[in-house]
């Protein structure tokens, strides 16, 4: 009952947010957060539930973004059509991706997916005539206000999480998990492991591609290093899911929130707090500290990852009971 209440309140709060909060800047951060909910959840269905740890999700994100961008560039079609096509094209790219990677297991799968992601980035860079190369694709965003993008992102996030939840709780979802737990055993029970891995990959690629297409529409600029970035998308998708909780429905959403908040917090030096303290007290120590904090935003993230893997190997959501026990000292029995 309590859980159902949360499920009603949270979407309601999110839906009303743009009316309550007028800050465009805050909405921008929320849009980034929602995009990461989509990407993290998509990665999670393939890796967290089906056990195929992909290091190449930037490929799907980038393909989705480029679908929207290239439609505009070559056919002068509104990039919003990319929202319809981006996910599907990403799914199509997923087919050869799966054909190459799925015969491989464990570390080999991870390496092959990493290589494919990087390969696509290089191709997009070199194919100057088609993609515009590193000069990228630039469009004029449709809306000046953030609210429409926010609602589209919210819709995307809610749909992706709900659809993934529905699938996980149905028969294919059980097959996914059985493949993750023991692929050979799953195969011997008569599960077509290749088919179900491809289904999982298709869903994952589709939503990631949709996120990419929205990114193109929203940001108005893409180039291969931005949308096919190994570090900024492939690895970040993994980290978002790990921090939040691999193999849990809401873990990636929590991870996305932590990541976006963390990054912005560090980038702005705790929203200018240290700068201000430096000015107010006249002490150079604070100014130096502010500089150091800004410098350290990736460092902080790296340390967060290490700490999470060491102490919360199942992420914030997966190890929530442990956190409650150890940090808040709440005894679930009492």
């Amino acid at each position: 009952m309590k859980k159902n209440l949360y499920q009603l309140i949270l979407p309601a709060v999110l839906a009303l947010l743009p009316m309550a909060v007028k800050s465009e800047y805050f909405l921008h951060l929320m849009i980034l957060f929602l995009l990461w909910v989509v990407i993290g959840s998509s990665w999670n269905i393939l890796a967290g539930y089906t056990g195929q740890v992909s290091f190449g999700h930037a490929a799907f994100f980038g393909v989705g973004a480029y679908t929207a961008g290239l439609l505009f560039q070559h056919l002068q079609v509104s990039p919003w059509w990319g929202m319809a096509l981006g996910g599907i094209v990403a799914m199509l790219i997923g087919l050869p991706f799966g054909a190459i990677c799925f015969p491989l297991r464990g570390a080999y799968f991870a390496l092959a997916s990493l290589a494919l992601g990087e390969g696509i980035r290089h191709i997009a860079t070199v194919a100057e005539g088609f993609t515009g190369g590193m000069m990228g694709i630039m469009i004029m965003p449709t809306f000046t206000s953030k609210a429409p993008y926010y609602y589209i992102a919210l819709g995307l996030a809610v749909l992706s999480v709900l659809s993934i939840r529905a699938i996980i709780n149905s028969k294919p979802g059980y097959y996914f998990v059985s493949i993750r737990e023991d692929q050979d055993a799953a195969a011997s029970l008569g599960i077509d492991t290749t088919l179900y891995k491809n289904i999982s990959l298709s869903i994952s690629a589709f939503w990631t591609g949709m996120a990419g297409a929205l990114y193109m529409n929203y940001m108005g600029f893409i180039d291969p290093n931005v949308v096919f970035s190994l570090h900024d998308y492939s690895v970040m998708a993994i980290l978002v899911a790990i921090v939040g909780g691999v193999g849990t429905i809401y873990g990636p959403a929590v991870g996305a929130f932590i990541m976006v908040a963390f990054q912005e917090f560090f980038r702005t030096g705790f929203f200018g707090l240290f700068d201000y303290l430096g000015k107010a007290t006249g002490s150079p120590a604070f100014t130096a500290l502010s500089g150091a904090v800004r410098q350290a935003h990736v460092l902080g993230f790296g340390i967060l990852v290490i700490v999470v893997i060491l102490y919360l190997p199942n992420g914030v959501v997966g190890d929530w009971e442990k956190i409650k026990r150890n940090v808040f000292r709440i005894n679930p029995a009492g």
């Binding site: 465009e24 800047y25 921008h28 702005t268």
Partner: peptide
């Protein structure tokens, strides 16, 4: 040096 971060920064300057 990244466009998405640049955009956050630009929006912060304008709206906040």
């Amino acid at each position: 040096g990244k466009p998405d971060v640049g955009r956050s920064a630009m929006e912060k300057l304008i709206s906040r």
